[in-house]
Computed example of a mutant assay.
Amino acid sequence: MTHAGLAVPTAVFGPEAAVGTAHALVLAPVTPCWDGGAFFAPVTRVLADAGLRVTVADTLSLWDEEVDSLDSFVARWRGLLTRYGPVDLLCGNALGGAVAQALLPDVAPGTAALLVSGPARTDAVLEARLREIADLAAGGRSGDALALLNRRVQPHGHRPDTEDDTEDDADDALAPHDPTAGRRLAAGLRMLCGVDVTDAVRAHPGPLLQIVGSHSQLVTKAHTAAAPHHRVHVIEGAGMRPHFERTAEVSALVGAFLREKGLT
């Protein structure tokens, strides 16, 4: 798929398109490069095992220098939604979660939403942490930016369990600057600053499950929004990646959500 000449890398999991097969569209977080959907693998397995066809898209692939805000970025995604066909479950992680929530007015009223650490709004603390990483990336220090991001996505109070973890962090910090990675990190993280899609989320009549970690250094429950019929679930002890840190608990939550909403 393209938009104004920009390619949108995707990965598809689960059964091929067929009549009666529910379709999930997943929007990726900020990553230094497209990872083929690895960022959502534990949740994707649950969705595919439940019989959904899952399309995972590189959210940032639609960004270029003409994009000057999350609103203009979301407008690009809005223009592409119909190309993916009917979407029964709209998912997003981090930046992808913010974009997915902004797109809720543009999907069918009954569309379900599944978000993992996807902010509906930001605050001064979150924005300061995002800008710190973005400024490193924009300043020619993508290795340092990635090292700091890797620390921030860990649960608050996390300490490396092994010497290898410490060495990995050091290697990240000393890694040569990657201009493409730097642009992606800087652009994606800066777009999250000033986000507030609360009204769009609360107005969505369909089901919604938001999952966040209690020990997240970035997106917390305070950055979520929900209507009375939506659910925000906090995973105790987890950081920004509860689906990797507490895989069994998150998988059970997602599976129950699918069954309750008739998506299996």
Rank of each mutant, 00 (worst) to 15 (best):
A137H: 05
I133P: 00
V250S: 00
E245R: 01
H223A: 04
G239R: 00
R190M: 04
D171W: 07
I133K: 01
V232A: 00
I235K: 03
S251A: 15
G237Y: 09
P205M: 07
A225L: 01
R190Y: 06
A138I: 05
A147S: 10
D171E: 12
A225P: 00
E167N: 10
T224N: 08
E236R: 13
H215L: 14
A145V: 08
V153E: 09
V232I: 07
L192K: 01
T224W: 04
A252R: 09
V254Y: 00
V212W: 00
G140R: 07
R183I: 03
H204T: 09
H204A: 09
V234H: 06
H230R: 02
H215W: 08
V197Q: 01
H204Q: 05
G140D: 04
T162L: 08
R231I: 06
A175R: 10
P176W: 01
R131V: 15
D164P: 05
L218K: 09
G139T: 06
H156S: 15
R151M: 15
A181M: 05
A227W: 02
H233D: 14
C193E: 12
L189G: 01
T220E: 11
D196E: 12
L148M: 12
T247D: 11
G182W: 07
H158C: 10
L136T: 04
P155L: 10
R152V: 05
A134C: 12
T224Q: 14
V250F: 00
H223V: 03
S251F: 06
A134S: 11
A248D: 11
A186H: 08
A225V: 00
G194K: 03
R241W: 10
P179Y: 06
A248V: 11
H243E: 14
D171C: 03
T247Q: 14
G213C: 12
T180I: 12
I235V: 14
T166A: 13
T247I: 10
T247P: 06
I235D: 05
D135K: 04
R190I: 03
T220N: 08
R184N: 12
T166I: 14
S142I: 06
A175Q: 03
L185N: 02
M240A: 14
A200N: 05
E167V: 13
A145H: 05
V197N: 03
R202T: 11
L146N: 11
V212M: 02
L189P: 02
A227N: 02
S142A: 14
Q217R: 14
V195L: 08
P160K: 01
S251C: 13
